[in-house]
């Protein structure tokens, strides 16, 4: 059995959670004040994920970058592979919010999409 210490992110209380695990199995979450804490604790130790936001370079606009994000959350350990995959990406204006900028980023099955309209000119 091992214990993992986390801070709950659901509210300013920031409960110090202790998640007891056996292998990949969560035995118990303690230290939480409410149910949300337990749900967070379980997910964070078994399948931690994040939405990643970044920018990519733009050609053909007075804007220099377009902000982007992963269309869904991706595994936490893929964050750096995800932004590194954006390093060489350059897109041509116009770009519209929701446009797919990069498919299946870092083999996550998730796309990178634009979060802002960038017009040409």
């Amino acid at each position: 059995m091992r214990e993992i210490n986390l801070i709950c992110i659901n509210c300013p209380l920031g409960c110090p959670l202790v998640v007891e695990m056996e292998g990949k199995e969560v035995l118990k979450v303690t230290g939480n004040t409410c149910k949300r804490g337990e749900i967070y604790g379980r997910k964070e130790v078994t399948d931690p994920t994040r939405i990643v936001t970044s920018t990519v370079r733009v050609k053909g606009s007075k804007e220099k970058t377009v902000p982007v994000k992963t269309s869904k959350d991706i595994p936490k350990d893929k964050i750096f592979s995800c932004v590194t995959a954006l390093k060489e990406v350059e897109v041509e204006a116009p770009i519209y919010m929701g446009d797919i900028i990069l498919e299946n980023v870092a083999d996550t099955g998730i796309n990178i999409i634009a979060t802002k309209n960038v017009y040409s000119g």
Partner: peptide, 21 residues
């Protein structure tokens, strides 16, 4: 450009530019 905007009003997580839009 980070996300976390709009949870209260739109019940979803938007980035700043998306919220403004």
């Amino acid at each position: 450009i980070h996300n976390g905007f709009g949870l209260h009003i739109f019940q979803e997580e938007l980035t700043g530019p998306e919220y403004a839009d």
